[in-house]
């Protein structure tokens, strides 16, 4: 079996591990690094449950080989805390009831984070498009879109307060 020693940057930490080349990123994250926040869904690229960010962009970890990701920044839901505090998206999802069974949530939140990093003031339509690769079978999406909008508003308020403090 073709096994390689790989160094992966996951959530800002370097992990060196021996990986069979036929093992997907999803499997390595869950089984070798025990980062089980990334979910195992359809395995075929049709549900988005396994979404992680690579260099800030959402990809499907079930269809990615770790050997191709050395030197790239991989972010999973476990790496979303900022300074020991939950990301505004995580707080908004919890407070707005945007989580029901929770299986799609890590992927949805990461897709939303990629959008907000690129576009801090998205319209509802832009949010819906950015999340279009993440299937949710419980919420009907409304609470999810509401939660992302709430997080957008909080981040904007916080920035305004900080700017006021400086002026």
């Amino acid at each position: 079996m073709d096994v390689r020693l790989l160094t992966l940057n996951v959530n800002g930490e370097q992990h060196t591990l021996a990986v069979p080349v036929c093992k997907t990123l999803l499997e390595v994250l869950r089984e070798d690094l025990h980062l089980t926040g990334t979910k195992h869904g359809c395995e075929l690229g049709e549900c988005g449950a396994c979404t992680v960010l690579v260099d800030g962009e959402p990809i499907l970890s079930c269809l990615a080989l770790p050997i191709e990701l050395e030197g790239r920044e991989i972010l999973t839901i476990e790496g979303l805390m900022e300074g020991g505090r939950p990301h505004p998206l995580q707080i908004a999802f919890a407070e707005m009831g945007a989580v029901q069974c929770g299986y799609c949530t890590p992927g949805v939140v990461l897709s939303a984070k990629a959008l907000l990093d690129r576009n801090p003031m998205p319209t509802r339509q832009e949010i819906a498009e950015a999340l279009s690769g993440n299937l949710c079978r419980c919420t009907g999406y409304i609470q999810i879109l509401d939660a992302v909008e709430r997080a957008v508003a909080w981040v904007r308020e916080r920035r305004l307060i900080l700017e006021e403090g400086r002026s």
């Binding site: 690229g45 988005g48 979404t51 962009e57 959402p58 990809i59 499907l60 897709s111 498009e129 279009s132």
Partner: peptide
Amino acid sequence: VTSPQIRNM
């Protein structure tokens, strides 16, 4: 080609 993830890959 619908899904941002698929378009990125």
